[in-house]
Nucleic acid binder design. Structure first.
Lengths: 387, 387
DNA sequence: CCGATTGCTGCAAAGGTTTGCAGCCGAAAT
DNA sequence: ATTTCGGCTGCAAACCTTTGCAGCAATCGG
């Protein structure tokens, strides 16, 4: 035995042909051993498996994908991994996918719609479907891209496409009502990034709720949905003399609190702040953040399920599905909306008594919502609507 | 024109053959148009490009990978995406890779060494190399896996493999010296997860520094490197009557501060806490966290560069590189260690004067380090050591 | 004992691309 | 006028796997 050759792992990977040769069967038998074990004699099968193990053989997924048309990979496109809102969603999607023998490839767009489109293109050929999370691009572009690769949209509703959204409208309404109950009459809304469906939804609901409550709501934005983005608005918030603020997300809310602090304004004594998302961080800041909890993990799971559901394009292979251009196979595409819940913590309080707006009135225990508590609300499953 | 057929996007993707047919050239010319443009007549080239654009042709990366052996994808395996330490690294790696026309696929292991190994296997055939970040598995397993796919290890040193690490040893030393200067003599170290090279390194350096400073250091752990993990140690910290704590990372430090707060102990008055990492969050908590800044983005960039460097396995294709088992092509594998820096904020102060340990002694301005400041230290580039 | 059935395996095409080699044509060199 | 060369293009093999079809042997039913 030559000293330099310890035959631990082969430098060049073993192919199906090597296994076939070494175990004295045809390559098709080897193939079937892995992809249709019930079709091969148990004795042969175990021999092949032993040889394969011995040679360190692993099926070449590229070659398999080439013929089956299915890669067993999913793409997950995220606006910003650094936003703590996303990791729970990512983890949930990954674990759900793993259960069905799929892998998830995560990509980050830095909140850039251009990067978003490029990533969909780049991913299209290497995954069986993509989860498009919090897209910033236009609906029409999304529809167009959906013809290139099966798509499930998260945090946005696009007609004709499978979507999973959180009911941020209801969340924003609850938040505003909570603030009204505390006596606030001059509110501000820190809106999110341009192109965000969520932001539009929040704005619509918050405006309606404020109006019907006889309060004034000024919208500040669009903004970059980060601490920095929130912090930069402190000055404007002060200038507008509002007593309560609803932020597009927790990160902005936290940034705003920091910014207000720097200006000498205290939360919640001088101004109340409520966020949206209920990221882990919102329990760690001082004051603890009142916020609208969104079921992000459930969203990730649901989206994967929708992508992989049997009536999805992915379920049937590429081999038989040679449909021509006709559009008559339009299936019912599900749209799911997950429930949200207001979690009241320490960043909201009664409106200051000095102002001209309802001095110190009606400090009331928040109506239908759970008082406080560090625990998360139970995961909402939401209703399904077929379109 | 039939009403149901608006020929926007083809339902079935165009192949290189379609483009060839439509532009009246051979498929090899089309291929060259994309992969070796200088070899084809400019006129032909532009015609092919136009047709390709028109048909919405995109090269099938699986087929390309099948023959070139290079997928132009990189894998990035992360212990826990939810840990804010990682996102900057991920983003840096992605942008660096994108510049070289590579895509990065991120995967999360949930701090599980088994999942880690499986992910490397799963990724091995679909990427050209993987960045293994903060591995929890054994060195020998890493070495073994490195024969399956080119590997760059981040946050660990493995002999013979390219590695990029942060000088947490120096960081821990600085932190301990800082605490000693403040008069602390009873210290605790919250160690990290089992299998973490970083944790071992910190422990070694902190112990040495404490010993040579005549202080006592008790090690608590191993622990799960999260807020929860840190918070759970508050009780033990109190029981040990230490006056200062160095945590494996910022998350644990922050969790500990929360936990201490719940026990009625105040930071930094009663006990000083310093973290490691300098995640964005550490500037947002109260008190702001004193911590050891690690150049995570630089680490991500460097690791990608090392993986894609010309003398790497990836640089040469699979076609010519049919080397047999001989190991005589052992190249020099670089190991890079990035500088760290202590950032002093508000979670550290002079040791309480009541204890029996050096009452109120020597509150001194921290020696060689920058005083405070919210700004990040300049990105350290670190030295290169050939092994 | 014959025909049908069952269980297993081999054969070969197919999937989309890259690339070494050879061929063609026109221009420059001799 | 012949040779040489360079620029461009076509040919066909190769990459590794899956899968419809056919073949084979053994078993079963009648």
């Amino acid at each position: 035995m030559t000293p330099a050759t310890l035959d631990e792992g082969p430098a060049v990977p073993a192919t199906i042909r090597d296994v076939a040769r070494a175990s004295g069967v045809h390559i098709s038998t080897v193939s079937r051993t892995f992809s249709a074990p019930h079709l091969v004699n148990p004795e042969t099968r175990s021999r092949v498996l032993a040889v394969a193990e011995d040679l360190g053989y692993r099926p070449n997924r590229a070659a398999r994908a080439l013929i089956t048309g299915r890669t067993h990979n999913l793409g997950l496109i995220i606006a910003d991994i650094a936003n703590p809102f996303f990791p729970p969603l990512i983890k949930a999607a990954e674990s759900q996918a793993r259960q069905r023998d799929y892998h998830v490839f995560v990509a980050d767009t830095n909140e850039d719609p251009i990067a978003e489109e490029e990533l969909v293109h780049a991913l299209a050929k290497q995954v069986d479907g993509v989860l498009l999370c919090s897209p910033r691009m236009s609906n029409s572009l999304i529809e167009q891209l959906s013809r290139e690769v099966p798509l499930v949209v998260i945090n946005r509703q696009v007609a004709g496409l499978p979507c999973v959204t959180m009911d941020v409208g209801q969340g924003a309404r609850s938040a505003v009502e909570h603030l009204l109950t505390l006596g606030h009459r001059r509110l501000a809304l820190l809106s999110g990034p341009r192109g965000s469906w969520t932001s539009r939804e929040i704005r619509r609901a918050a405006s309606a709720a404020a109006r019907s409550g006889g309060a004034e709501l000024t919208v500040l934005g669009p903004n970059h949905p980060t601490e920095t983005g929130g912090g930069a608005l402190a000055e404007q918030v002060r200038r507008n003399e509002v007593t309560a603020v609803l932020a597009y997300n927790d990160l902005m809310a936290i940034g705003l609190i920091e910014g207000l602090d720097a200006l000498g304004m205290r939360v919640p004594q001088d101004v109340s702040v409520v966020g949206i998302d209920d990221i882990a961080l919102s329990r760690l800041t001082r004051p603890k953040l009142t916020t609208v909890a969104t079921p992000t993990a459930a969203a990730g799971r649901t989206a994967v399920d929708m992508l992989l559901s049997t009536d999805s394009v992915i379920a049937r292979g590429t081999r038989g599905g040679g449909r021509s251009g006709s559009t008559d196979d339009r299936r019912t595409t599900a749209q799911v909306m997950l429930r949200t819940e207001l979690v009241i913590r320490d960043s909201t309080a009664a409106a200051p008594a000095d102002g001209r707006h309802r001095p110190g009135a009606q400090v009331v225990v928040p109506g239908p919502h759970r008082p406080a508590g560090p625990g998360r609300p139970a995961a909402a499953t939401g209703g399904v609507v077929a379109s």
